[in-house]
């Protein structure tokens, strides 16, 4: 039986968010909703990355007065995951901005947000 630790809980939440995000991006027909689904997906990935670093009895990776220098490396949470999350947030913002810009421009042309109509291939 798996113990319901905080790490396990957040791993499951992140798997759920990833599922919801991918499903939304694939099956929803509205471009804006697809973009919202993408933000959910990237949230899920972020949650997975943060919970990688967490363990029971860890401390925040910021030195505070009175911390023991010798014990800090073993006690502090792993900082690799959180560092990558910052990057993923930045990438999420940039990708969302580009997607919204393209959606705005294509809406101006076609007057609809439905992906099935906007993205229909009409090659010359």
């Amino acid at each position: 039986m798996i113990e319901l630790t905080l790490q396990f809980l957040s791993f499951m939440a992140s798997a759920l968010l990833i599922l919801i995000g991918i499903a939304g991006m694939l099956f929803l027909d509205n471009l804006i909703k697809k973009i919202i689904a993408f933000t959910l997906l990237s949230d899920g990935v972020n949650l997975a990355l943060v919970s990688l670093g967490y363990f029971e009895g860890g401390v925040v990776a910021i030195l505070t007065p009175g911390t023991s220098v010798a014990e800090f490396p073993q006690n502090a949470v792993l900082i690799f995951g959180p560092g990558i999350v910052l990057t993923n947030i930045v990438i999420g913002v940039s990708t969302t901005a580009v997607l919204v810009a393209l959606t705005m421009v294509l809406y101006k042309r076609y007057g609809t947000l439905k992906a099935s109509k906007v993205l229909k291939g009409e090659r010359k």
Binding site: I2, T5, Q7, F8, F11, M12, S14, A15, A48, L52, G53, F55, A61, L63, V69, F72, P73, Q74, A76, L78, I79, F80
Partner: peptide, 22 residues
């Protein structure tokens, strides 16, 4: 994959970074 990783995360290089923090 997450169930397998749960509680088995390798620490790798991260403690080294924390060791140099001060």
């Amino acid at each position: 994959a997450f169930v397998q990783l749960n509680g088995n995360v390798a620490r790798g290089i991260s403690p080294e970074y924390n060791r140099l923090a001060h």
